[in-house]
Write a protein that binds this DNA or RNA. Structure first.
Lengths: 207, 207
DNA sequence: AATTTAATGTTGTCAGTGTCAACTTTAGAA
DNA sequence: TTCTAAAGTTGACACTGACAACATTAAATT
């Protein structure tokens, strides 16, 4: 509670400061070289101070990932705004926003998806944040179904397919494995890709 | 050249032995705790011996990843066999085999896809192996186009979409984020998913 | 207001890591 | 047979995550 000034013995909000510092370091250098001690140094605190706020390194990284999922959810929700629910563009806009999010914060995105190994059951807040961002997709599918533009299959399954696609694109792009130059060419690919997905989601059956 | 016995000073084929040991350790414990020294110990060699065969830790892991891509390619090629080129089942079979590969060797698969960060340009053999496994997909799409079951768009782009989907499914499944129980339910999901993809790939245009 | 207490931050330590440098052994070319 | 370069070893260094013991402080209790 106590709002303490920076240079007092007690730090004020060390927990959030550590998370912020970790995000900053990850954005600069990636995650493989990130050390708890480095984070502590950046905040100007002893190498063991983080252990008062996080059980271990994994717990700090889980908090960082959690924050990432919150950002991702907001990004997707923002992308949806202003686009009619009953249009194909809605899902396309979300997909493009999703991949752009990943490309804009490559290391942070990787961290969110298992670059470091979490015990998900141990970090329920992380699991919850991830679930909420997924729900943006599910709801969009549901709305599209109500509007009659998507087939009437299980919306969860359909959302999982969409999620797999954008996640795969994001990861492969980050790995530099898609061989599509960033910029206009990449956007063209994303649109092509979402067109294929949407067409698949629209159709009614028939193998 | 010289085929030396195990217990001589010179080891015989230390390079491959190190790769094998690394794969074994990764399969057992994952990659985050893997150390070069551990690998060396497993092979029964001093902690610095690996440096005669690999520039650094990254180089060893790149070799492990490369081997993984070769396996993946064989897996996909095998899955294709016996299934008519002009049938939708061909792509489905490859997709299912792909995801099953990932699920069967979770840590190895992750390693192949950037769980450790490679300088891809520095490890050209790895890039080459990855490219070859991707070509299985591209060729399947091309053959499907010749048979008239897929639209006549750029096969590379189409293959990238397919790859993104199966890669995304694999990663999300490994992260335990799909919430689909392994087993029959999961196979059902994979088939549903490939049906959506194939329908999208088949269609001719119309947003 | 004084005292206690629990939360927070620090120092010291440990085994383990990746990598460098210097040394030793060995296989095969000269 | 000698020489040399490849292959393996030993020793060192700075760094890491984590533990234990200690110090400081904010705030709850008296």
């Amino acid at each position: 509670m106590a709002l303490v000034t920076k240079n007092s013995y007690h730090h004020g909000d060390l927990r959030q400061n550590l998370i912020d510092a970790a995000i900053a370091l990850i954005s600069e250098e990636g995650i493989s070289d990130l050390s708890l001690r480095q984070v502590a140094r950046r905040v100007g605190v002893s190498h063991n101070a983080p252990y008062r706020h996080f059980e271990d390194k994994e717990a700090l990284l889980a908090a960082v990932a959690e924050q990432g999922f919150q950002c991702l959810r907001v990004t997707m929700e923002t992308a949806k705004q202003g686009i009619p629910i009953d249009s194909f563009q809605c899902l396309e806009a979300i997909g493009i926003a999703y991949v752009n999010f990943a490309l804009a914060q490559p290391f942070h995105y990787r961290l969110m998806f298992g670059d470091y190994r979490y015990n998900l059951s141990k970090h329920s807040a992380l699991a919850e944040a991830a679930q909420q961002s997924f729900m943006v997709l599910v709801n969009t599918i549901r709305e599209g179904q109500s509007a009659g533009i998507f087939r009437s299959a299980d919306p969860l399954s359909m959302a999982r397919v969409a999620w797999s696609l954008v996640h795969g694109q994001s990861m492969l792009a980050l790995d530099n494995r898609l061989q599509v130059k960033q910029g206009e060419e990449f956007v063209t690919f994303l649109k092509f890709s979402s067109q294929i997905l949407i067409q698949g989601l629209a159709g009614n059956s028939a193998t």
